[in-house]
Write a protein that binds this DNA or RNA. Structure first.
Lengths: 262, 262
DNA sequence: CGGGGAATTGAATACGTTCAAAGGCCGTGG
DNA sequence: CCACGGCCTTTGAACGTATTCAATTCCCCG
């Protein structure tokens, strides 16, 4: 849908959109297209680039699982209700990333996906996908691997990021994680326009917004970043890694393992 | 090794062992036995009740994945090296539970499994298992479900238990989790003989041993538990749930979802 | 019975939270 | 175009919780 419209804003718009090549769903979409005689099966299955308005739910906690989603633009926060009813932010979904995959097993969504800004997503209905997958081992494997990676990242994230780091380390690690995830999709890793509020970040990191605010100020003063509202610029990645309590990046060019996906 | 020895201690010894009926591997073992003409295929595949000495590794970080393990007696701690080389306790494995399943996907173990006491485990070689599984859908599904449950528990554990609870809530939640997991295998849920040291618990909970010690004292004084060394007695489950910041248990008889597997 | 590691206790400190207030940004309406 | 109001963010000060360092006690094992 968004591939139409005027030429004028195309430049700017495309900069925010993620190409299929940069999308995590590629490994799902491609086998579908190739395997079937009809080359456009993927197109037939996938509802491409559905718009979601800021604040709207892509899916909600408890909802039956039906589709896998690939975020093609915008971003989402993943939330769940805590035992005492508070909103818990348990992650963020950025353009190019997948959402909903951890609902495959239980069959229902364990969290809400709320658009942090106007966004769009491709929706892959899972029933035809899984029946296709059962005939295409590589597709099944891709889906499996995807879910497992997700699981591992989550585990690592909480083991490392949440439990044993102090406030400053958490924020530094969070910014680095965002940076890395953006880089992986072809966005700038040093110039970041945050979509989420300080509250959401604080909630996600298990801190208070006041604490988080002080930390932003501190990182600003130390020269590691320039944070002006939601515009963040990272000046010193290695310095941030140090501040995050992570090993220096020099030795690990492709640091898949140490990267926490938020 | 421990299956031999005198008759005298048999009674006591068996009390610590887990029967196949109480073992998480049952769903894996049973389909193998049934599916094959040779009813004893499971026996042929599974290396039953291998002894592991206290302090020995069932598997180690980085090691190639080859077997699924079912703990038939004793217990293990799961550890990994943190970024700065410290030991991080990321979980515990109790009798009747599975170990190694989260190594299936990456193909290598992401953590160490260290016996906290003399233990024994059944080892299921994964290659024949997975080839068997590809012919038996239900087996494959069971393995899948197993891994997914693990993933969810882990996620929930860290989301809820680690990140946003204070020290007292963490300890209370930890004790409740142990209690529940023991109950599920037919062990007492109120009388617990800890296999792990205070240090290991503190490490797991992201606290200092001194803090943990003070908390044990506090819970003792409040009458919720009696902790004398590694002998723990839980007196008031609902009180503990309250202390853990969890909703009361009354409404949820089978609280699979709220149970954090440590 | 003695040695040594584990566990507990105490006191001072550091870190994050809480409560309170001020500042800044943005959209609405005059 | 500016003024107003609301919300998000920042800053300040007091407080509470967990950590740190140090000393002591307990308990297991030889």
């Amino acid at each position: 849908m968004s591939t139409s419209s005027s030429n004028k804003s195309a430049q700017k718009r495309d900069a925010q959109f993620v190409a299929c090549d940069d999308c995590d769903m590629l490994k799902v979409c491609t086998p579908i297209s190739i395997a079937d005689k009809d080359f456009s099966l993927a197109d037939a299955l996938v509802k491409r680039r559905q718009p979601i308005k800021s604040g709207d739910h892509l899916f909600s906690e408890g909802e039956a699982f039906s589709h896998l989603f690939a975020i093609t633009s915008g971003s989402f926060k993943l939330t769940t209700a805590s035992d005492d009813g508070q909103e818990l932010v348990i992650g963020f979904g950025l353009a190019g990333e997948l959402l909903g995959q951890n609902a495959i097993h239980p069959g229902f969504h364990a969290c809400n996906a709320v658009a942090l800004e106007d966004a769009s997503a491709c929706a892959v209905p899972f029933t035809p996908l899984s029946s296709t997958a059962s005939q295409i081992p590589s597709l099944m494997q891709n889906i499996q691997a995807m879910m497992n990676k997700e699981c591992h990242d989550m585990h690592r994230q909480f083991t490392m990021l949440m439990a044993r780091k102090n406030a400053e380390q958490r924020l530094a690690a969070f910014l680095l994680s965002l940076s890395l995830r953006r880089s992986e999709r072809g966005f700038s890793g040093t110039q970041i326009q945050l979509a989420m509020s300080r509250d959401d970040i604080a909630n996600f990191l298990g801190l208070r917004k006041e604490t988080l605010s002080r930390l932003f100020t501190k990182l600003n003063l130390s020269g590691l970043i320039t944070a002006k509202g939601k515009q963040i610029r990272l000046h010193d990645i290695d310095g941030l890694r140090l501040a995050a309590g992570l090993p220096a990046s020099i030795l690990i060019p492709q640091e898949q393992e140490t990267a926490q996906s938020a």
